[in-house]
Design a protein around this nucleic acid. Structure first.
Lengths: 166, 166
DNA sequence: CCAACCGGTTGTAGATTGCAACCGGAATTG
DNA sequence: CAATTCCGGTTGCAATCTACAACCGGTTGG
């Protein structure tokens, strides 16, 4: 039996991801390329607390959205990777990001990636998902000319422009 | 200054809708056609508590996703209507519902609407949004041949089939 | 040997959620 | 007219969850 209150897809999704941090953690793994605990903790723009991050990571692993792998470079390092289920959240993230930049008081440099991804449409989402599959499911290195690189470049340019205004 | 921790669209959306009930309430107004407090309270499949419903409704009103209107049929009755911002959540809901039915243990009769809406694609989402605008923004009566009627019919058939199995 | 880094845990205070009982005014019923 | 039902909530309380800071044992590189 499902642990949920009802078998409605929106309700079950709200039970799983409907909290302050789950989506933000997934965003950082998906778009930020952060895959280790310390990296997620210190590079987080919003300043997540370590205990919350730990509890979210284990919840997402248990839910099958992240998987844990040993990192060959360091015996204690854990490599969190997106699963296929999480990768298929890309269209959700894209629509969510598009809605957020339309209706909420976002900062330009932090919303440019969402706007590019939304503008790219389903074609770009598919390319991005294929790229995430190669990196997170097959362990391939991050391509330098992929969708993520493109989004990151746009973000860095916007951030530099925001730092040095006028 | 925005009240949020960061101006990232995903973060701001998580701050606004990232809780157990906001999406569920919006779903019931959007797809269930429930627009009064008691209706939302008693028809809720998940059994939301009245204080939580009250707090979510006022939060959503303050956030500009719902608007309050007097109901001519009863002086105490309040008509909660979707705003344009909430109506533009339709693509988010569609992708979210599609993801939920793919990856979570949904019940067939409760996921059929999500599957139909996902299968209908952006064209159907636009038709649905236009219909919601007519009803919620312009106060037109609910059309008997619209997208909502179609989804509701499919749900009722599936529910009847689930009640009387084999 | 030592400092920095690894993924977390612990303790505590405050906020949020879930549940049940209850409220005064408005409409319906007999 | 009186009693009942319906209206959108509120109140009190216990349990859970969140936020913040301090801390932990093991690992690695210099």
């Amino acid at each position: 039996m499902p642990e949920g209150k009802s078998g409605c897809p929106i309700n079950l999704t709200a039970e799983l991801l409907g909290d302050r941090w789950s989506l933000v953690v997934l965003r950082d793994v998906m778009f930020g390329g952060h895959r280790h605990f310390r990296e997620l903790l210190t590079h987080s723009v919003e300043g997540i607390a370590s205990n919350i991050l730990a509890s979210r990571l284990s919840k997402l692993v248990e839910a099958g959205l992240l998987s844990r792998h040993d990192d060959p470079s360091h015996r204690q390092k854990i490599d969190y990777r997106l699963t296929e289920a999480a990768i298929e959240l890309v269209p959700v993230m894209a629509q969510l990001g598009a809605w957020g930049s339309r209706w909420l008081p976002t900062t330009p440099e932090l919303s440019i990636r969402a706007e590019l991804l939304a503008a790219g449409g389903p074609k770009m989402w598919q390319r991005f998902m294929d790229e995430l599959r190669a990196v997170h499911l097959k362990g391939r290195p991050q391509p330098a000319d992929g969708v993520l690189a493109e989004l990151t470049l746009a973000y860095e340019r916007a951030a530099a422009a925001a730092d040095r205004p006028r």
